[in-house]
Design a protein around this nucleic acid. Structure first.
Lengths: 404, 404
DNA sequence: AGCATAAGTTCAATGGGTCAACAAATGCCG
DNA sequence: CGGCATTTGTTGACCCATTGAACTTATGCT
């Protein structure tokens, strides 16, 4: 379960010193361990990185002392020779925390260095009626309690990633129309809780973090399409999220799929969101949005019951999705689409049509057809992805955590 | 005129050695010189990079010895103190060559380290009737002659970038339907010419190289939209071309703008290319494509004459462009659109409508409106962009050219 | 002429990776 | 059961790039 393979290189624009060599090679060695399925030896690290065994040993020694690696049982060599000492990411040392503030729940996830979930808590409840202050106070309490539990188990939390369902400006102000938030400084509000204030906080869009949660060693580049009332996308390229010049990339919901379609709140006509968003599909299916329940539930039930209007609405949504996603794939040249959010639950009815339409559209489908699959992570994926992004940062900049 | 600011960092996945420090810092120092408007002193390099004056001096010495830099006149300091020795990119030493094979011409451009054109030659003529072998033989001769001239002026050509109007697979095989080429190994054919064989050849799509030619110090991220018979785009992010996972990114021509539109040769309906490509616009304007002449010429003439049908056709094309480009901007979050190819000539009629429609569509237009402008480089931009990309590579990896 | 100031150079010190030799730990084979 | 091949991991001398501080050089200002 390696997290993101962020660039373990010296920052462009910064001078390279001796210490930079160390930093780079530490991250390199660590990545060999995190990318390998099982335990790895010092000699294997040397082989995989191109460093000498001497250097690999030195680096490993530092990572062991810093609590990022642990020695495991001996590895039985295939032939003869001295058996190797196994090395693995330390499961009990450092961890990452993800805090998700969403429309109808709050969630917190803590993962260890291997990306495994060690703690998860969800607080259901519609947040729309409550003021940002009240919501964020509850979220901070949730994070603080998770933090205390993690500390109790000996886990050091290296950072906290906050996920919100909206646009983030300047890394601070959140505009989340679905929550009725227009310029809420989420991090400042969270920091009012003293035990959260001590944390290294960062914030990102919920779809972005959900996309991050789908990164695996095998699948490193894909388009993550999250469908709820709004439609958003996370673009993941070689394990790192593509953010665009201002951090607003991935607004798939406002790609046009029908120039003569219904008007969208953004001002344009026929945006994907107003054609294939949950609200539109629910209405097209002839269902009334169940009060308090997420739209996806009613839709899924109707589809499972084989309701004709619902199946037709889903078919139409899949076609619209194919139009928008096809355009995105032509622009971005990624080979895989991951359906998240409510689309994941609706995948059985969306994937066949979507897959077929994409196959028909894509220029290069005769060489390499697109792969469409539902998200592997279920609900609350954003808090997992956020937590993993903390760990990914730790793994790519280990020197920051190796206090001498 | 700095060329692309490619990452001057140690390759990810590669071990960092002492030599890597040197390489990184050499590129860093060189970039300070290339990014600065005028001559720079050693002390300024030290200040800008964070290196010590001692190190900056050492690096500059190497770059001088390698012929990448030259000393210029003394710089008058603002206060008193010892005057600094000016340093600038050596204009006469190294250069890059771009060779463009296009539908109705062949072009070659040679630039020096500063990105200035020192030599350009264009061979007009429709290449569609001729076999790839004949075309590429002529192209190789053109390159060889330019190379000889450049050598005669003392310029060492560091590499050659070939631009073709089609998809490139595996860095070798070119599929260019407009030329009637389906799997032509362009580089192998060019190498049959002995004086070209010695060059370090690379190959890319013509639109990509044209996009590269628009990169300046001020404009480092944009969507370059090239309209001819086909429509393609080059996505430039912080000075480097975004290529996607397989190198096919930027196929804007096959983004759908009208699900009920005419069928495209790719199989889908309503692709931008069949709605706003030159052929479609020409037909919509009621013009017959002038035999042998590029479509854009007839259109431009009719538009200048104020022909009503033509103006209406261009207006419709601009709307279609807005639909497709709007989607791309929402996905990629870049702020500027550069119109290239025939669209550059048609810009006076396209930009107003396109700009207004984008303003209406874009989610964030109230914060930051999109900028739309025609390409600064005219025809044969691809050969310029290719030549510049060679120089950009040289500047980002200077150690490869500093023979000890 | 003398002084302040800034540019550029010199050189010992620091620190990180390499290289080669060596020690340690196992399987294999006689 | 003992020697041998084989592979792992460690040690120390060496190399090399950057640092930092002292020093030299070249100019303007008073």
């Amino acid at each position: 379960m390696p997290a993101s393979r962020s660039a373990t290189s010296l920052g462009p624009g910064l001078p390279a010193r001796q210490q930079s060599l160390r930093d780079h090679n530490l991250a390199l060695a660590l990545r060999v361990v995190s990318d390998a399925g099982g335990p790895v030896s010092r000699a294997q690290i040397a082989g995989a990185t191109g460093l000498t065994r001497a250097t690999a040993s030195t680096l490993v020694e530092l990572l062991l002392a810093g609590g990022l690696l642990t020695e495991t049982a001996l590895l039985t060599a295939p032939g003869s020779g001295r058996p190797a000492v196994g090395l693995a990411l330390a499961p009990g040392g450092f961890g990452g925390l993800g805090l998700e503030v969403n429309v109808d729940y709050l969630a917190v996830t803590v993962v260890d260095l291997t990306g495994e979930v060690v703690l998860r808590e969800v607080l259901d409840g519609d947040q729309r009626g409550r003021s940002p202050d009240v919501v964020l106070k509850a979220a901070a309490r949730l994070a603080a309690s998770a933090l205390a539990t993690a500390h109790g188990r000996g886990l050091r939390v290296a950072g906290t990633a906050v996920s919100v369902p909206g646009l983030v400006r300047d890394g601070r102000h959140v505009r989340a129309p679905n929550l009725g938030w227009y310029a809420v400084d989420v991090l400042a509000a969270l920091r009012r809780n003293p035990s959260v204030a001590a944390l290294d906080l960062s914030i990102d869009n919920e779809a972005n973090d959900a996309a991050r949660s789908e990164v695996t060693a095998e699948l490193r580049s894909f388009l993550f399409v999250s469908g709820e009332i709004g439609v958003g996308a996370g673009i993941v390229l070689d394990g790192v999220l593509f953010r665009g010049t201002r951090g607003w990339a991935g607004e798939l919901g406002h790609v046009s799929v029908d120039p003569a379609g219904p008007r969208c709140r953004c001002g344009a006509q026929g945006c994907l969101e107003v054609v294939a968003g949950l609200e539109a599909v629910t209405r097209a299916a002839g269902l009334t949005p169940t009060q308090g329940l997420p739209h996806g539930v009613a839709l899924t039930a109707a589809a499972e019951a084989g309701d004709g209007a619902t199946l037709a609405a889903l078919e139409a949504a899949a076609r619209a999705l194919a139009t928008a996603i096809g355009g995105a794939l032509h622009l971005l040249d990624v080979g895989t689409v991951v359906l998240g959010g409510a689309y994941a639950r609706l995948a059985p009815w969306l994937v066949p049509t979507l897959s077929r339409c994409l196959q028909e559209r894509l220029l290069w489908s005769s060489w390499e057809g697109p792969i469409v699959r539902p998200a592997a992570q279920g609900a609350e994926a954003a808090s997992l992805g956020g937590a993993r992004s903390v760990v990914a940062r730790l793994l790519s900049e280990p020197e920051r955590w190796l206090v001498t």
